[in-house]
């Protein structure tokens, strides 16, 4: 495997923590014991992965529905190719957009190349946010849609094989 940025020990740490940290006073010691490592090595390696971006962050991962964000809309836009990067950066900077990406179209079924996720307590709130995005895109946008989610079918996050 070329281009691999983690070694086997890092991988074993990912496998041991991908489902969550142990809920004990010394979770890193518990992981160390499980893997046959020292607690210092576990902590050092986790710090290094956090620094390099392999770990985005450590903490609580909420179920957004359960904390009141019951509407989530994937807003999608067909934006002129020559303007999409400049406009995408401006959409991504809006404080209510949680993810924003440029993606390939899949014509004819899918004409949209800019995706921005918005959340709200209601669909009305999401569509108001989508309208703001639409205003920002102006004439560069040739079509758009909002895909509301109606059910979480799975939400486990990353799962490397043990």
């Amino acid at each position: 495997m070329i281009d691999r940025k983690i070694d086997d020990v890092d991988r074993s740490l990912i496998v041991a923590t991908q489902g969550g940290l142990p809920l004990v006073p010394q979770p890193y010691h518990a992981i160390a014991e499980q893997l046959g490592l020292s607690a210092d090595e576990v902590m050092q390696r986790l710090r290094a992965m956090l620094e390099s971006g392999i770990i985005r962050r450590i903490g609580a991962v909420p179920n957004h529905y359960a904390i009141g964000w019951t509407a989530n809309g994937m807003t999608v836009w067909d934006v002129a190719d020559e303007l999409v990067d400049e406009l995408g950066a401006r959409i991504g900077a809006l404080d209510f957009v949680t993810h924003c990406y440029r993606r390939p179209r899949a014509l004819p079924a899918w004409p949209y190349n800019l995706f921005a996720m918005v959340h709200g307590a209601s669909r009305a709130e999401c569509s108001a946010k989508a309208e703001e995005i639409g205003v920002l895109l102006g004439d560069a946008c040739r079509g758009s849609d909002i895909l509301y989610s109606t059910k979480i079918l799975k939400k486990t996050g990353l799962r490397l094989a043990r």
Binding site: R4, L23, I54, R56, I58, A60, A66, I67, T156
Partner: peptide
């Protein structure tokens, strides 16, 4: 919070692209 499914997980969130 985990038992009540308010949290789906408590721990690290990984960015798999950063590991190849």
């Amino acid at each position: 919070l985990l038992a009540d499914k308010v949290l789906t997980r408590f721990g690290p969130m990984f960015q798999i692209e950063e590991m190849g």
